[in-house]
Amino acid sequence: MVDTKYIGINFNYYRPETLKEVLKRLQEKGSRILAGGTDLLVRIKTETEKPAIIVEITGVKELHILEMRNELILGALVKLYEIEKNDSIKNTYPSLHEAVKSIGGTQIRNMATLTGNLCNASPGADSAPPLITFGAQVEIKNLSKKGEIVNRIILLEDFFKGPGKTVLEPGDILTRIIVPEPDKNTGSAFKKLSRVNLDISKISCAVFLERDGNIIKSIKIAVGAAAAIPVRAFYTEEALTGTIFNMNKMQAALNLIRDDISPVTDVRSTAEYRRSVAPVLVRDALGLAWKRAGGDALL
């Protein structure tokens, strides 16, 4: 057993105040970004990771941005509690709010950043499914050979590559998350199953839909902890798109979720369990999202 009382390894520490300096430091071998610390320090203590250089980014002002005009901009340093306490986010992006609220205890949410939750790329990262359904993008920066800052923006949906793996290369930093403004007549919801409240998900699901009268005009469903990465439920989405919302007649479509996911058995749950509860979870999230889109959920 490793001793988690002390940090057993030595590293150098820097806290630059500009993004450019951060990016320069990130070019050094063995460097790692420190933001909230709730994941990184656990990994260092358990010796899953042994960085030679820690680059704390909290000194970079622009990464603290939290702005909601048309779209929602969440800088890399926005902490979970800031999202939890923000009423505009709660009203406009309820599924994101629900997901963030369900992560960890108060102290963790006071420390951890939303971006950190994504970058650690746990298949069960609760914030990923809602952001994916909203069509969120992430802005990634690095330094060119000439030493200039280069920018790229990709869909969050294309960001994850496997458990703990993302498209981020050494030298990259995710600087902000950009979430489009939902259209009128839309609704979203997030549901998860865990051993106890606030625990890590066995399985989670986010739904974002657009309602046209009693018809589901369009729908996006994303599932967490049910595959190597958070996944879209394309079969289920397709089957539900353009149909009349009626809980009693949607079961066959909802069952397609079992083909959309590829769960494994791990410490938190079994593949069989995940497969059998998935339709129930989607059903609950769908009902709630429909209600929030102004629909009659009792149909």
Binding site: L41, Y81, T106, Q107, I108, M111
Partner: peptide, 13 residues
């Protein structure tokens, strides 16, 4: 003023 975990906070931070 906010509750945090001192076991996961570097003193330098």
């Amino acid at each position: 003023g906010r509750a945090v975990l001192s076991c996961l906070t570097l003193a330098v931070s």
